[in-house]
């Protein structure tokens, strides 16, 4: 497709301008991204090695901020929370998404309608989701109060106020919001599987269970890959939901790297440390996204 690549030098300025036109049209975007993505990445990277506090400053401190960062208890909490949250979030979303996709793939009447219901939370802001679940899980007025009101006076569900359990409420709300999306991804994968192969497997005597376990699910690998990448990257970037649902609390019980970065940079005036934490977030995401984009774009060729 490189027919536009004009190797031959052209005479007039007009000709040369015409040949350069496509690249000229692309160049503002390239410039914007070069500055506002890559330039900014390098700026923040640089700040993470400086003594910046409330404002950027350029006194070089080497690895000092990173040393400090890993000694801060709150960062420790944030990272271990991210592990717990990320693993559960991805695993439950995938399991639930796969289950719903398989159930919906059984020639269900009103499939479109049901699918619409499963997927609508994806259209909502995490803030809205957070508000809804915040009060729904609130022991004072939410599910605990309601069930107690129904007569089970011993019923307790106060995870959102419990330092140990609060992180799981984030998982609940996040799974509610995204599992329908994962379902849609798997459903698309299922619909892409060759129907004749299914018939062949049935003629070979495979039960429905064996059909899915041996034939269908192994073929959903690309969908699993995409789901993993999307969910992992959402988990690492999770900020809004935590702010709306728990505000990082009780205490720092639901702090995640994203909220840590924000509070250290903008409220605690430790910009150098905030920058260092952002760099670590970027590295984590890049480790997932870069190989994925690489393989996707290479396949295209």
């Amino acid at each position: 497709m490189s027919f536009s690549e004009k190797a031959n030098p052209r005479g007039s300025v007009g000709d040369r301008l015409r040949d350069a036109l496509p690249r000229l049209v692309l160049s503002p975007s390239v410039a914007i991204v070069a500055i506002f993505v890559y330039g900014f990445i390098f700026f923040t990277l640089y700040l993470s090695f400086t003594d910046s506090r409330i404002l950027p400053s350029f006194g070089w401190v080497g690895w000092h901020n990173y040393d400090n960062l890993f000694r801060i208890r709150a960062w420790d909490t944030a990272v271990s929370n991210l592990v717990v949250f990320g693993v559960l979030y991805i695993a439950i979303c995938c399991a639930l998404g796969l289950l719903l996709a398989i159930l919906l793939d059984q020639r269900i009447r009103a499939e479109g309608f049901i699918r619409t219901i499963y997927l609508y939370p994806m259209a909502l802001s995490f803030i809205v989701t957070g508000v809804a679940w915040k009060w729904f899980l609130d022991p004072g007025i939410g599910i605990e109060a309601v069930v107690q009101g129904w007569g089970w006076t011993d019923f307790k569900f106060n995870w959102i106020k419990d330092r140990e359990m609060a992180i799981y409420t984030i998982v609940i709300a996040a799974v509610w919001q995204t599992s329908g999306f994962v379902m849609a991804m798997f459903l698309a994968g299922l619909r892409g599987i060759d129907g004749e192969m299914m018939k062949a497997a049935q003629i070979d005597g495979a039960s429905t269970f064996a059909l899915y376990r041996r034939i269908v699910i192994p073929q959903l690998r690309p969908a699993f890959m995409s789901a993993f990448v999307v969910l992992a990257h959402m988990a690492i970037k999770s900020y809004d939901l935590v702010i709306a649902l728990t505000g990082g609390g009780p205490g720092t019980a639901t702090e995640l790297p994203a909220t840590f970065m924000y509070s250290y940079t903008f409220t605690r005036n430790q910009m150098g440390i905030g920058a260092a934490s952002a760099v670590i977030m970027l590295m984590t995401i890049a480790a997932i996204i870069v190989p994925y984009l690489w393989s996707e774009l290479r396949e295209k060729k």
């Binding site: 497709m1 490189s2 536009s4 690549e5 496509p22 690249r23 692309l26 975007s29 390239v30 991204v33 506002f36 993505v37 890559y38 330039g39 900014f40 990445i41 700026f43 923040t44 700040l47 950027p56 990257h233 690492i236 970037k237 900020y239 994203a258 970065m261 924000y262 940079t265 903008f266 910009m271 905030g274 920058a275 934490s277 952002a278 760099v279 977030m281 970027l282 995401i285 890049a286 996204i289 870069v290 984009l293 690489w294 774009l297 295209k300 060729k301």
Partner: peptide
């Protein structure tokens, strides 16, 4: 797609990566 040039896939990859970065990374300079 229609006026590709040497390196256009890389340019696209670089544009695309910009959507996935944690935006915490750009908050301070922005």
């Amino acid at each position: 797609t229609k006026w590709t040039f040497r390196g256009s896939t890389i340019v696209f990859g670089l544009l695309l990566f910009g959507c996935f970065i944690p935006f915490q990374m750009v908050l301070i300079p922005m």
